[in-house]
Design a protein around this nucleic acid. Structure first.
Length: 477
RNA sequence: AGCGGUAUCGUCUAGUGGUCAGGACGGGAGAUUCUCAUUCUCCAAACACGGGUUCAAUUCCCGUUACCGCCGCCA
């Protein structure tokens, strides 16, 4: 059996979109599962919208997600070049070949004529298919048009009365009548190929034999099959994935929040969580365990079991999953990943050891890496900013009593053994009828300026005895 | 309008011609904790509708509805 080859062919007209990322993922999973090759091709035919920065973003995002390609613009391969803009010279000859064999013909229709045709069918409320008026032009007519300065496009001659049938890996058998497909353009009058033509030529030349893509491409498929057949090439096996929708069931767009993988990263999502989440949109694990690495998923992946319906991208589960991944992350790795979200603080105030300790005690509630920003201000600066609730605890009679008591004892406290000390401290007040909660609230309020936060022992340990004393002293009346 | 696709808790999904229709997120209740959170336990929550086929349909068939996609010399 021939090796399986799949590809992802993003166009660099924007940063890598999560939808594209999911398509890439499913291609990657399919390739890994079947020991195939995953190739990356950049479809930058549209020079005006394409941009080098986006190409770089696509590379970076794919890598960050762990979707490494076997062949591509940067790593090369036997079927390059892998950038469509470097392949412009190869399309015309195939188009020419199709013309010579009678599968395609030159079309001299102008934009205006085409639009008129379209409006006509709109008026008649019928589906618009190109009339095919240029199909049988004589040499004289063509010469005449050329003399007028008209540049022809090349249209594929779609055979009438046929039915194109293919067995989609996710949707099953799909049928299309060719009568509903108008002769479509394969080479624009400016000499560049259209999408439908370029993909087929590229996929054929790159020996791509399985094409997994979004279902927005379903209606392109019969056209592409027609081209493969005219070329005498083997038709690949297709698989069309349902779309990812926003919660309001519309296309996922900027107004719903992040859409590009890099934006998710900036917001504090871990790429491991993002791929895992996105894999669950359409695919489900056979063992019920939803938290899985890409490689684990690949082992369990069967394209035929992928759901063929659309799915809604809900942040709730992504957030939960991101939290799960943060909890599992190695402390040092996490500490490093958190740094970009702590730029408003002077990390030099803490030793490496203190910093790690801080991360250790504040990591638990994190959903997004960026949550850390607002969770740790009291580790920095001389005195914390005290909020109203904390102020109330500090100023209360019990609060002042507790704090004075701390000050009277703190010099004797061993900050390496705070757990036991604070335990005893709480018990001491408990015996006087003061709840542990209230006792600790006073301490917490004085030291952090807040009523909620990380473990008090940990906080005091990171801050050190001197700073803790200073802060408490400052609020005692 | 036409063509194509899809339809199980709010969301992602599992599943079957006879099931208490399962799980996860989210929601609710409780427990734990120095707080918030975490964690743990429990609870509520679904087979779109109408016809068939069948002893039996959520499951198979047809239709309706809803939603999505496509109808470019964009990709």
């Amino acid at each position: 059996m021939e090796d399986i080859r799949v590809r992802i062919a993003p166009s660099p007209s924007g940063n890598l979109h999560v939808g594209t990322a999911r398509t890439a993922l499913f291609n990657y999973l399919f390739a890994k599962k079947n020991n195939g090759k995953f190739v990356l091709r950049i479809e930058d035919t549209d020079l005006e919208r394409s941009n080098e920065a986006y190409t770089q973003n696509i590379f970076d995002s794919l890598k960050a997600l762990g979707l490494n390609w076997d062949e591509g613009p940067d790593v090369g391969g036997n079927y390059g070049p892998y950038k469509q803009s470097e392949r412009f010279d190869i399309y015309p000859k195939y188009a020419q070949m199709l013309v010579e064999k009678g599968y395609a013909y030159e079309c001299f229709c102008t934009q205006e004529e085409l639009e008129a045709e379209k409006e006509e069918s709109m008026r008649n409320k019928t589906a618009h298919v190109y009339s095919g008026r240029c199909r049988n032009l004589t040499e004289e007519q063509k010469a005449q048009f050329r003399a007028e300065g008209r540049k022809p496009s090349i249209r594929f001659h779609v055979p009438k009365g046929k039915e194109i049938v293919f067995n989609d890996m996710v949707k099953g058998e799909l049928k299309f009548k060719t009568d509903l497909i108008g002769d479509f353009v394969i080479m624009k009058s400016n000499g560049t190929p259209t999408y439908n033509f370029a993909v087929v030529i590229d996929d054929m030349l790159m020996k791509i034999n399985h094409i997994i893509r979004g279902e927005d491409h379903i209606s392109n498929t019969p056209k592409q099959i027609l081209i493969y057949e005219a070329l005498g090439a083997e038709v690949p096996t297709f698989g069309h994935l349902g779309m990812i929708l926003a919660p309001d069931r519309s296309k996922l767009s900027k107004r719903h929040g992040a859409t590009a993988v890099s934006e998710f990263v900036e917001k504090g999502y871990l790429t491991e969580a993002l791929v895992n989440f996105v894999a669950l949109l359409g695919w489900s694990p056979s063992d019920g365990n939803e938290i899985k690495t890409v490689d684990e998923i690949a082992q369990d992946f069967r394209i035929h079991e992928v759901s063929s319906s659309n799915s809604v991208f809900e942040y709730d589960k992504l957030n939960w999953m991101n939290g799960q991944y943060i909890k599992k992350l190695d402390l040092k790795v996490l500490a490093e990943k958190l740094k970009p979200y702590l730029t408003k603080y002077d990390l030099n105030e803490l030793t490496e050891e203190q910093y790690l300790k801080m991360v250790e005690i504040t990591r638990e509630p994190l959903t997004l890496l960026s949550d850390i920003t607002d969770d740790v201000p009291y580790f920095f600066g001389e005195y914390p900013e005290i909020d109203d609730e904390a102020r109330a605890h500090i100023d209360s009679e019990i609060g002042q009593m507790v704090l004075k008591d701390v000050m009277s004892k703190i010099d004797g406290w061993d900050f390496n053994n705070l757990h036991q000390i604070l335990e005893d401290f709480r018990t001491y007040f408990k015996e006087q009828g003061i709840k542990a909660k209230i006792t600790m609230w006073a301490v917490r309020a004085a030291v952090t300026g807040r009523t909620r936060g990380a473990d008090m022992c940990g906080i005091m340990e990171v801050l050190g005895k001197d700073k803790v004393k200073k802060r408490i002293q400052a609020v005692i009346k």
